[in-house]
Design a protein around this nucleic acid. Structure first.
Length: 465
DNA sequence: CGACGGGACGC
DNA sequence: CGACGGGACGC
């Protein structure tokens, strides 16, 4: 980078590994502004704004090189989604791909949070955790063991929640552990014995580990705290996400706070996420509350959503309007920080099912998600469901109706407000009917009944679909 | 002789 | 949408 002798720079770009940031920002942001923004996170060895060769105009991307990976990671974690310069879009911040890499895919947190270590064969997983917890909260530890004898091979994995924690462990732990970043596990796409219907993330399962991600509020001070003296509150929010989220997912999430009146995912060239989403609430309080609750929320786990206020075009210039705005905001803030009293607005942080949180709003207490039955399973029972006023999306139905087990598939009748749920087990279907009949999901009321046998091709015994 | 360096699974 | 310049150390 510019102030360093060239060769040294070229050699240092990846030294140490993962010490360089890739920053996507507005074209107007300068090198100095970037340097100023990232100054606090460590020793900056160089800042370089990529410019068009001909026009010399910034392409809106930049690299920031730190002395240490942990510095770069902390900067990424803290700055991602922040507005660097007033009036510019929130920055996206990633660890840069190594210069030798040809891939231009974002480096995911997944690749930066697990370390691989050598340990005494006498170490238990508890020993491992005790040894490495000083660098950050550990999601889990695993020791590689001989499958038959169960004896340790003296190797282990430690998964942290944040890239900076893994980087700190690698930088600072005893050299005898030989800590390095673990190669991501090869996507073993385990011949998914259940492969019917839309893809579902593992994180949708109702398992407990997921809950530790739930809300940043459970861990005060871990994430950026909004500066509620700034006065820049609006009814509009800009969501930044680094993972592929659908508009439906974002809608469902932010619709949990009453008053959402607009939601638009700003899609990228591939039509899938990556960018920002715009949310507008009918009132300032809802927006403040949504920002406070969902900024930093990991959805899906590992992908921290970033929520900022954006200008909604309202006149906030008058002192009176500004004061009123700040008053409402302060009241909401107080309610947020003071916890339990707000629970009628939104369930408190620890509430059990993140999966429910993700896209389902309902008056019924749903069991955790279950796997689908194999698509070629024989149907033992079908349910007939009538929706009012309009049918629910397939994914939502699958999410809800799979929870009683053995769901084979969801079938919506095109152009009608009815659908069929095919189950491999009669009891599961009966359970679903008992729990879901007459209930409301995402504002849609459902009648859930046993389906009549298909009328066509009824020859001998009534075939079940 | 005698102990260095090695290193990849599964929430 | 958003991925890689300019310029010359020291043998």
């Amino acid at each position: 980078m510019e102030e360093y002798p060239s060769k040294q720079v070229a050699e240092n770009l990846d030294d140490p590994p993962n010490s360089r940031l890739f920053v996507v920002t507005s074209r107007s942001v300068t090198e100095d502004e970037l340097r100023e923004s990232f100054l606090a996170f460590g020793d900056i060895q160089g800042v370089w704004v990529v410019k068009d060769k001909q026009t010399k105009e910034s392409k809106g991307i930049a690299y920031v090189k730190f002395a240490k990976s942990s510095q770069a990671c902390l900067a990424m974690e803290d700055m991602h989604g922040k507005v660097l310069v007033e009036g510019t879009k929130p920055v996206k911040v990633f660890i840069a791909q190594s210069r030798s890499s040809t891939r231009h895919r974002d480096v995911e947190d997944e690749e930066l949070t697990r370390i691989f270590v050598m340990i005494p064969k006498t170490f238990s997983e508890e020993d491992l955790k005790e040894t490495f917890k000083e660098y950050g909260d550990i999601e889990y530890c695993v020791i590689i063991k001989n499958k038959t004898t169960g004896e340790s091979k003296g190797l282990g994995y430690v998964r942290y929640y944040k890239p900076s924690q893994a980087a700190l462990a690698i930088e600072n732990c005893d050299k005898t552990y030989r800590a390095i970043l673990a190669e991501p596990r090869t996507k073993n796409t385990a011949p998914d014995e259940y492969s019917g219907g839309a893809p579902r993330g593992d994180y949708m399962g109702g398992g407990d580990p997921v809950n530790s991600y739930a809300f940043p509020m459970a861990e005060p001070g871990n994430y950026q705290v909004m500066d509620y003296r700034s006065g820049d509150f609006t009814r509009c929010l800009m969501i930044s996400t680094r993972a592929a989220l659908s508009q439906e997912q974002i809608f469902a999430l932010f619709d949990l706070i009453p008053g959402m009146e607009y939601c638009e995912l700003q899609r990228d060239a591939y039509g899938m996420s990556k960018g920002h989403a715009l949310i507008r609430y009918s009132n300032l309080g809802s927006a403040v509350y949504a920002k406070e609750k969902l900024n930093g929320f990991e959805y899906p786990p590992g992908n921290r959503l970033v929520v900022n206020f954006v200008d909604d075009g309202e006149d906030r210039s008058s002192p009176v309007g500004r004061m009123a705005m700040q008053l409402v905001a302060a009241q909401m803030m107080s309610a947020v920080w003071n916890g339990p009293s707000t629970s009628q607005v939104m369930k408190p942080p620890g509430f059990s099912a993140v999966s429910t949180m993700s896209r389902i709003q309902t008056d019924v207490n749903l069991p955790p998600m279950k796997k689908l039955a194999p698509p070629d399973s024989k149907a033992k029972e079908r349910l007939f469901v009538v929706f009012s006023p309009s049918p629910l999306p397939m994914e939502v139905l699958e999410d809800v109706f799979c929870r009683f087990g053995s769901l084979i598939e969801v079938h919506l009748v095109p152009g009608r407000k009815v659908g069929y749920m095919k189950y491999a087990d009669k009891q599961c279907a009966d359970d679903a009917m008992a729990v879901l009949h007459g209930r409301v999901v995402n504002g849609v009321k459902m009648k859930v009944m046993l389906a009549d046998p298909p009328r066509e091709e009824s020859h001998k015994r009534p075939r079940i679909y």
